[in-house]
Design a protein around this nucleic acid. Structure first.
Lengths: 254, 254
DNA sequence: CAGTGGTCTAGACCACACG
DNA sequence: GTGTGGTCTAGACCACTGA
């Protein structure tokens, strides 16, 4: 156990959490990427706190990308991975961005199934009053073997058939739609939310439950102002950075 | 591109958490906005779970805006408040948006202090090599008595004096800078992140620690490509919805 | 003061990975 | 099987609110 040197942090709160985090980070500085931490019960005892508290603090460091937890194996010091910077003004698929950047993408857990959108959702997602028969395409995108995003697309059946998707999807529904002759895409309205990963999402993205994620919810319109795709995307923090350039004047309407 | 279709995740977890959440939501449907829930220990006993588990689930509902917790008083059913929809393409202060929408904003916890930016931060925030003397302006913005955002601005001393801020700030540093004759603002590069509220932030924004928040980190440039303002903004979920319109073609450079 | 939510502890048991 | 992280419980004590 390392002894604390200078009490220069004047935490307003007396909570052990802060000191604990400081101790842990101090401890990490003496380790190398890939090193394994002691088992949680041991570490908790060493640091003089309950395992619950230790877990809460370690979880914080995991979410900040400083540690990696692997069930049944242990907790390891991470080697920080670089960001993947993503401009939001222009419509581009993750797939094509990755290709441009020379990265290999991989599709996991691909699921394609017909669904019927009914009730309130119909209006929210497709601006329609009547029920919509759509195709749901969900999958995890991985880069260099690491899951980075979970994507769900809903496309009305009239725009895309199940066989079309099965035979020619490379990961991006957007790219698929953009190639079709009978559809002319126009723009996308994308909502930006912060959510916490639930159990299912956490498992798929190989992150801790409760991790804060950026969720993008987008309506993709064609020239007739029809919604041709409603999508939800979840991005693993630390792998992505989103940005937008904001202008002083309102941009020209195209 | 490789494509691996792996078997479905068969989670279905037997965790009490899911059933508990369902029970709670069902219980809420029989209550009206403003009603108080039973004390946590009682409710936990009624539902046959530990208080810790109950708290975790209730916290989730609080973060989704369905419940409101008030220490020392109780937990109440919320009346859902409408969204405040915020387009990100154009630079506009929260203050002026609120004014346009006819809402009254209020500034709380205003703090103004000179700081020196040194080391790595200098480059990140201001693209400078040498240390920067700046003014730090932080405050909470409230609308209708409810905290909605926590804003921190850093402005190099050469652009804004402490007395200028003190005498004429209405909540927005951006509006202040925009009014100055000797500065011509150009555009802002805004990064979008998802973070969890720490203790301090939670207290200021009157939300639960650990709530997922949108954090905007922005560099505001003038016509000479100088950074005149580096800001971090945190927004309470449920009060805000951010969106961006994404075009097929790259927008014209202005 | 009593009663509420906020934090933390100690310990049990489960789910998973690896030999 | 053994050892790891993942979940959950029971209960203690603190911090805040309002009467």
């Amino acid at each position: 156990m390392s002894q604390s040197i200078s009490p220069k942090i004047q935490t307003i709160s007396r909570a052990p959490r802060f000191e604990l985090e400081a101790s842990l980070i101090h401890l990490l500085n003496n380790l190398n990427p890939g090193d394994r931490l002691p088992p949680e019960p041991d570490l908790a005892r060493q640091l003089g706190v309950s395992r619950a508290m230790l877990r809460e603090v370690v979880t914080g460091l995991v979410e900040r990308g400083m540690l990696i937890r692997r069930q049944g194996i242990g907790t390891f010091v991470a080697n920080q991975t670089p960001f993947f910077d993503f401009g939001l003004e222009v419509l581009e698929s993750l797939d094509s961005l990755a290709k441009r950047t020379g990265l290999e993408t991989e599709v996991r857990d691909l699921e394609i199934q017909p669904v019927e959108i009914i009730g309130r959702e119909t209006k929210i997602q497709f601006n329609e009053e009547k029920p919509v028969n759509a195709l749901e395409v969900s999958r995890v995108i991985a880069i260099n073997g690491k899951a980075v995003a979970y994507l769900i697309d809903l496309v009305p059946g009239c725009f895309l058939s199940q066989s079309e998707v099965k035979t020619s999807i490379h990961g991006s529904v957007y790219d698929l739609l953009a190639q079709k002759r009978d559809i002319t895409l126009s723009y996308s309205r994308t909502d930006i939310l912060a959510v916490k990963a639930d159990e299912k999402l956490a498992k798929r993205l190989e992150i801790a439950r409760g991790t804060a994620l950026i969720q993008l919810t987008a309506q993709l319109f064609d020239m007739n102002e029809q919604v041709v795709d409603y999508s939800k995307s979840f991005f693993v923090p630390g792998q992505f950075k989103f940005h937008v350039m904001r202008r002083l004047t309102r941009p020209l309407e195209v």
